[in-house]
Design a protein around this nucleic acid. Sequence first.
DNA 1: CTGAAAGCGCTTACAG
DNA 2: CTGAAAGCGCTTACAG
Lengths: 338, 338
Amino acid sequence: MSASSDRRGRATIEDVAAAAAVSVATVSRSLRGLPNVAKSTRDRVTDAATSLNYRPHPSASRLASGQTRIIEIAVPVLNSWYFSEVLAGAEAVLSECGYSLSISAVASPEEREKFIRDAVAADGADGLIMVDLPLDELEASVLAESRMRVVTAGVESGRFESVVVDNVEIGRKAVRHLFERGHRRIGILSGQSDDPLHFTVPGDRVVGYAEQLTSFGIEVDPALSCVGNFSVDGGKESMLTLLRLEDRPTAVFAISDEMAFGAMAAVRENQLSVPHDVAIIGVDGHDLSEVMGLTTIDQHVEDHGVMAARRLVEILEGAAESPLHLEIETTLVVRSST
Amino acid sequence: MSASSDRRGRATIEDVAAAAAVSVATVSRSLRGLPNVAKSTRDRVTDAATSLNYRPHPSASRLASGQTRIIEIAVPVLNSWYFSEVLAGAEAVLSECGYSLSISAVASPEEREKFIRDAVAADGADGLIMVDLPLDELEASVLAESRMRVVTAGVESGRFESVVVDNVEIGRKAVRHLFERGHRRIGILSGQSDDPLHFTVPGDRVVGYAEQLTSFGIEVDPALSCVGNFSVDGGKESMLTLLRLEDRPTAVFAISDEMAFGAMAAVRENQLSVPHDVAIIGVDGHDLSEVMGLTTIDQHVEDHGVMAARRLVEILEGAAESPLHLEIETTLVVRSST
DNA sequence: CTGAAAGCGCTTACAG
DNA sequence: CTGAAAGCGCTTACAG
């Protein structure tokens, strides 16, 4: 360890400066690739830094520069297929671009409100990706006043750029597909009954479902609509309910693949067959949908993370912010369940 | 905004000091709950901080104190059921304890080596959780010399505390269960053929499988051993291979639930039935195992994250480090697949 | 092209 | 119990 290394034995910018026989200012400029450094100087500095295994102290450069190169990402829960796909996509581009990724799980509106207030007041990140977390007016304006750039994924906020899918169209697409397969009595497994986060996605998909049925001249039957809480178990329970109806549906649209998996299990448990007795379509493009033979509307979830991160980086590097709502195309993937 | 707020309009410790008519030192002590502050002073400071919505600037306090309250967590990939469970567990305890969680995906040995070198040299976190990332000698000693405390999950390192399961015992347990169900010809779907990360888990499970077979007097047949790369598709492919054998197995041990799902699909695709023609057991306790009717050895994955994070926090708050290898008990969950 | 110096917003002995 | 001052390790005008 060099004599002037820091409290914990790391090499500091001063060590590098001494080794290269220049000032710390020159080291800083050289290592960050700023202009106005002689080639020979830069080389000397680079060599010194390499041989000392020097990295700038993150907290010090953050404090001095005002930039953290940290992106915060908030998701409702972490252990869910959907959110880990988003995370994976975001992580890939952010690490590629030299940003750190800090994650938070924000499950309730109270946590969300607290998260936003803390994040803004502490000002610990350059950017924030809010995944499937609808913002109320107050939260949006708190965020808008902060230094952090914000991109939302999965939901639009009106005030920030977002990466979304057309959820109404997803609902229509699902019904259209089932209709084309000859189904006229089509049930739906939707989201939560009482969603404290006011998540807009389920509602939009239900609207698309209803719209498309209506435009086919089919009356929407409330008895065919169940809630599944986006879980496998919820999908199964709701499907069991639908199966008990005397005039049960011949096809069911589950607004997530995981609910669809639950629904398939329920059908089999009743000694019925998919798709013969009940056809099932999901939404997501879940890893397991292929092996399960589930027809699904693939929404390319990983791309949501990729796009949100990419846009955020672009904005941070100076791109003009536009009230852009980047829309990811969805793809119908037909398998044996319909 | 007060006159002396910082570059970006945040309230600073000086603003709070002015508002409470004390020095910044007193503000710092009050807000961090340090002793030797008069109750009335502390109250005044707290009020001022609240009304200014003050939070200490993270980079500033990190630089001054030398502690970041950041935990870094490295996983091979993010979009996998297993790792998102670990992540969820770790995030829950860390956010509860006031730590930020920074994540990195580290897919190859080169990335791992680079990650470790960078992490140590930059010294940007107080602690590090390495999940299922075996460390070589050099990496371990680089880490050991750093300021960061390290806990590994999923694999032991010899030098750091770890949270693990007994993978040999998992292999034995699986075979024992199948044996008790009357099976004598038992195949195995294991990990990767050429694993650049030198992941030890698959090997251990294979050892347990072989040991238990041998102790039952059954010869280990290499023809019954296939590789499945921990993926659904891999499991399916390998199962198809096993089904093509003229003397095919009556039961198969898949060393992960996802491979087991793939295997179940392969069996059905061959118009065979689980468990009648082939029984299948997995490992994990995957969310979908219940609905799929998969018998599995639940390894309580979320707890791995919880325990690793908990231990790391304890160590950071002063607990003595012991060469502890915390072992999570695994639980056989019998379902219809066996 | 390079360096001296101020400053980023905190924490931490030290003195009283 | 409280405050003045130094210091954490960088970056950034500014001057030359």
